[in-house]
Computed example of a mutant assay.
Amino acid sequence: MLDDLDRRILRHLQGNPSQSLPELADRLGLTTSRLSRKIDKLREGGILRGQRAVIDWQALGYAVEVSLRVTLDKTQSRAFDDFLEAARDIPEVIEIQTFLGQVDVRLSVIAKDMTHYQEIYRRRILTLPHIADIEALMHVARIKSDESLPI
């Protein structure tokens, strides 16, 4: 279980993940070595899974995001496995989610423009195995995109 100090550490890391260990220790009123031990325990417990760079794909020239809701032909025993394996190989697919219900998979696809999206869709998406139905939803605006947890 997390104690109050663990929660404070996690809140500060979520707020500013690039701060240095000494800077964070100072903010929390801890020694760097104590903070380091606490962070190590959070990693060992699987709560902290490392740091990562968050890249703004729009700054790299990608202007279009489309959400594809895919229903698979579940009469095929390997439908999910084959589809997911092939979808992972498409660089423009930035997120894959699976569901229980009418829709089996959601792909988030980015493209530089609509012409680029059509090329990806026709040459890569439509060639994915075991697709029974596909619906495209064009993203208009991202209202909330926050990975911070209420700790």
Rank of each mutant, 00 (worst) to 15 (best):
L24A: 03
G101S: 14
P129H: 06
R78S: 12
L126T: 10
E135F: 02
D133H: 05
V64G: 10
M138D: 11
I55E: 08
I134S: 04
E44L: 01
A53G: 10
D3M: 14
E44M: 11
L72C: 15
P22Y: 09
A141Q: 13
V93E: 04
V109K: 00
D73W: 13
G101D: 13
D113G: 00
A87M: 15
E92C: 10
E23S: 06
W57T: 08
I96S: 12
F83L: 06
G15H: 03
V140L: 15
R69D: 10
R124Y: 07
I110D: 10
S33C: 09
L107P: 12
D104M: 08
L72E: 08
I125Y: 01
Q118D: 13
K41C: 06
E135L: 02
R7C: 15
I134A: 12
R8W: 01
Y62V: 06
D81M: 10
G61W: 09
P129R: 02
E23F: 05
Q102L: 12
V105Y: 01
D104P: 10
R124M: 09
T32H: 01
A87T: 01
G61N: 03
V103W: 14
T75I: 15
E44Q: 05
Y121E: 07
D4F: 03
I47M: 01
Y117G: 00
R78H: 04
R69W: 00
L84Q: 04
D6E: 05
S20K: 11
R37H: 13
L60V: 04
L30G: 00
L13I: 12
L84R: 03
T31W: 03
G45C: 06
K112A: 13
H139D: 08
N16H: 13
T71K: 10
Q51E: 02
E65Q: 13
D89I: 10
A53V: 13
R106D: 09
I120D: 00
L2P: 15
A59V: 14
L24F: 09
F83Q: 07
P91Q: 15
D89H: 04
T98R: 14
R34M: 13
F99W: 12
S18N: 01
G29S: 00
R7P: 12
E65I: 13
Q102E: 08
Y117C: 11
I134G: 04
E23T: 14
I94F: 13
D81Q: 03
L60M: 04
Y62I: 09
D133K: 02
R69F: 03
L24Q: 07
K112Y: 08
P17H: 12
D81R: 11
S36A: 10
R8H: 06
S148R: 07
D133A: 08
